[in-house]
């Protein structure tokens, strides 16, 4: 899908440039875009290294596992059919905690492992209730420190780069709650 969007954006701008006669500005825009892409990446490089470094310490010190135990009560409500101590549940919990600490690199492999474990106990060709709920949680973002956005705000001279932390917490908690409740409602419907 991104292929069509990307090509569409470029073709659309070129066409409108041909019609309005400002094709030169658009060419200039393309070249400026290259430079901006690189400088954006460079400005994020430091902060990304920093946070992945910090979260590695959290992982090695067992902090992540500690938090995983802490959220057991929540996972019990979300996945009532999964047994305590099962491979699937522990992968799910670790994935959620990794996401919470902004460790995307660690979260994705754990998430895939969780899906594979859920698939083993599913025994059907379509997605199980647990798979749906788990995938939906992962399409929502619950993050303690949205570090990329904070550093981006800082780069562009924000007076208070962290001001958006609490608003992000509120918005994401409401969003994930709505999404999860909707899965619980939808899953009651009969499967084909």
């Amino acid at each position: 899908m991104i292929n069509y969007i990307w090509a569409g954006m470029i073709v659309l701008s070129l066409l409108s440039g041909l019609f309005s006669g400002n094709i030169e500005t658009i060419t200039k825009g393309a070249i400026d875009g290259c430079t901006e892409g690189v400088s954006l990446c460079v400005s994020l490089l430091g902060i990304m290294c920093f946070w992945t470094g910090i979260s590695k310490i959290a992982e090695k010190s067992g902090l992540i596992e500690g938090f995983a135990r802490l959220i057991r009560p929540i996972t019990k409500i979300l996945f009532p059919r999964l047994k305590e101590g099962s491979e699937a549940l522990s992968a799910i919990v670790m994935n959620m905690v990794a996401n919470f600490f902004g460790m995307g690199n660690a979260a994705t492999p754990l998430g895939i492992k969780a899906m594979k474990e859920l698939d083993k106990i599913n025994g059907r060709k379509d997605a199980s209730n647990e798979m749906c709920t788990f995938a939906v949680i992962n399409t929502a973002s619950i993050q303690l420190i949205p570090s990329t956005i904070i550093s981006l705000r800082q780069t562009f001279g924000s007076e208070d780069p962290g001001a958006i932390i609490v608003p992000i917490w509120i918005a994401s908690v409401v969003a994930v709650t709505v999404a999860v409740i909707s899965t619980k409602i939808f899953e009651k419907r009969k499967r084909l």
Partner: peptide, 14 residues
């Protein structure tokens, strides 16, 4: 990032 910044930059210029 480069690919998308180019597309967005062109779209904005247009």
């Amino acid at each position: 990032l480069v690919g998308l910044m180019v597309a967005i930059s062109m779209l904005r210029a247009s």
